[in-house]
Write a protein that binds this DNA or RNA. Sequence first.
DNA 1: CATGAATGAGACTTCATTCAT
DNA 2: AATGAATGAAGTCTCATTCAT
Lengths: 230, 230, 230, 230
Amino acid sequence: MNLASAVPQRRAPAGPKAEQRVRDILRVGREVFAERGYERATTTEIAQRLSISEATVFTYFRGKRELCMRVIQDWYDEIIAAIEADLPRQASVREQLEFIVLTHLRLFLIQGTGLCALVLSEGRTKGQDLGEGFVELQRRYTVPLMELLARGQEAGEVRRDIPLRLLRSLVFGPMEHMLWEVVITGRQIDVEASARDLVALLWPALQAPDQELQRLRQLRAQLQLVLAQA
Amino acid sequence: MNLASAVPQRRAPAGPKAEQRVRDILRVGREVFAERGYERATTTEIAQRLSISEATVFTYFRGKRELCMRVIQDWYDEIIAAIEADLPRQASVREQLEFIVLTHLRLFLIQGTGLCALVLSEGRTKGQDLGEGFVELQRRYTVPLMELLARGQEAGEVRRDIPLRLLRSLVFGPMEHMLWEVVITGRQIDVEASARDLVALLWPALQAPDQELQRLRQLRAQLQLVLAQA
Amino acid sequence: MNLASAVPQRRAPAGPKAEQRVRDILRVGREVFAERGYERATTTEIAQRLSISEATVFTYFRGKRELCMRVIQDWYDEIIAAIEADLPRQASVREQLEFIVLTHLRLFLIQGTGLCALVLSEGRTKGQDLGEGFVELQRRYTVPLMELLARGQEAGEVRRDIPLRLLRSLVFGPMEHMLWEVVITGRQIDVEASARDLVALLWPALQAPDQELQRLRQLRAQLQLVLAQA
Amino acid sequence: MNLASAVPQRRAPAGPKAEQRVRDILRVGREVFAERGYERATTTEIAQRLSISEATVFTYFRGKRELCMRVIQDWYDEIIAAIEADLPRQASVREQLEFIVLTHLRLFLIQGTGLCALVLSEGRTKGQDLGEGFVELQRRYTVPLMELLARGQEAGEVRRDIPLRLLRSLVFGPMEHMLWEVVITGRQIDVEASARDLVALLWPALQAPDQELQRLRQLRAQLQLVLAQA
DNA sequence: CATGAATGAGACTTCATTCAT
DNA sequence: AATGAATGAAGTCTCATTCAT
């Protein structure tokens, strides 16, 4: 394959009307991919919901795969933006953590369960159509939390003896698991209460190991020693 | 009025050779579904890897969906069996928890990452082909952990003020999240160390809150009292 | 709970070219279904005869069954239209009957023997794929004859003591039987002569029982009585 | 193709057990073909209803087609036998005709509607699997009626100016049409009454045309002449 | 003789994608 | 810029039939 003589791809149209089209397709594409997953989503359905021709979709996106990637990208950007916009940076690390968890849960549950599933599903199968850019997207998505945790470590509020990655899993893991339960069972939950509960559960694990407890343990040990010798 | 009595399906053969065939197809089916996910897996590929005709696959399984369900079921059964067989019931709840986590991680990472993804993916998309039996399978899969946590609660080692479901999410959540990181990034991890770390992180959150701390505080207070009187 | 909203079917195109395509497919579909019957007809063959892709067939018709139903419907419509257009309403009931029989025979023999067989066959097997709309189609097909017979009854030219349904069988039955003989044996027949012969045969059976004959019979009986007494 | 070196076909087994097998398969085959029609009948179903292996069916019959032909043949033989056994040869032609019609209707409706449909359907499609022997079977099936009509003609009770074939259509046609109505609509009918009605309708058409009427007219004319002269 | 087991051939159907207009 | 129309490629599934045991 002579890359220099690569077939020239038709460029997507430009202009203000075109931008609106792109936004429309992305919006509906998000709906459909969210509802059906990558494989079961069809370009037909996307086009029909917009009352446009299927061919038009391909005028603006090189193919199904590219469209789906853009959908996910946009969604990530929104979440990141939402968090960065309203994160109460003056509040305590714990409160900021609560905010992040709550915001995630909210965005997921309000409109994103399907997208969440999409990302999780498609990111995890070999031979997938979606593939290359995934790891990078995944990384960006956790940036706000990572930064918060880093700040927490610097401030001494979050333990330093555990790698950030592991702490991140400690937060996102239960969160996503909760979300799945919602998706699977269809049971409704109280988002804010759940966020609060979750952080309450997690916080002790994230904190620097309790100094008071350490000292008391030492004390007990010494006493036991003394008493044993008595 | 459906006067046409149901057309009878050809029964799957039942001899000893047949059992071997079923096992073969389930084995390879597991591989393919694991690698590709439900939609991207093809009966063609399964048959080819076994060097048998596609028709043979359909001789033993009514269809793709049934085969996939059986694959998942079998996998769940293996995991449950593995845990129940070797669970150190005499050991502490914490040690048993470590065993469960370790066993899960191991089975997932050794041969099951893809299946894990399969289950998680397919269970989470609307309009899926796999559908009805899924929630039930999901439930069976967490039985050993649920029982352990229940025993822990009875023994006073696990807090009672949080619903079991939430505690389950607290365990499975981070576990699965770790697994996904592995799948996505392809990075290898030290399974045993990870299991230990994870439980170390989780344990404080699962324990009866501050019981130890409460008792130590009492001890200190009494000692102080005694010393003051001495 | 079927949460998955129905997956939308691709609509058939609707332009002027599309109409031509639909007509082409219906035309060839008619041929193939006529020649082979429902089960033995294949979408492959229909596509091949038109030198188009099989997929194109499915662009215009949801599936084999729908196509076949449309084929039959169209054919019925043609027959009904042909009869209604040229039926000599001013002529005697008998002449109109002859016209209907002749028209049927003609349309059947010229291009429709196979379709006739198709309809008769598929309408008569349990567990058929074609099913729901069949009885209704069947009914529409006999409307012109039924109306004629009803008019004949009102005019006193057709006997009233036999249910219309039975009279209808009396007409269609032999007609179809003749047609089958043609199909089976392949023997050619003189359509017009056959129509004339058939109606000649049928007419006495349809007519109001002959009054002259009745009266004559009475006369004879009385005479015989008288002579016997003489 | 060198016919001389034709692959020797495995012969069907012989012996009393084998004959029973053949009868069983024919019996069930009749059921299945009758219920489903040729294409939709499966060797699987036939074998399953007998709790035997599919392969066994092929031990006794060369294939689906041969089995079906034998099924039809047997059925025809039964009907012919039933008619020939009980035909009241001493009774009038009309009574014999009534007997034949009644017997047909009965055998069809009791167990044979499906077979009737099978024969009619499969006999009428080109490219059919069943094919060669059909015309011959069809001929044998109408032998009793044909003979009766011939005798009727000789006896002067049935008109001679119409070909026998047409008269046969006149009888079988309405009969079959009635049967179809039953099959299609599922409506039950009074077999004996229907047979009587049908023959009542047909008889005038079969009779020598107006012979009676001719003679009566002559009689009246002569009487009038005599009376006028008196 | 009966059958367990396997399969070739082919059916219908779906869908992303292209291209002339 | 938009789309009507067409299709290649692929997928799931069915079934009559064969053959070694």
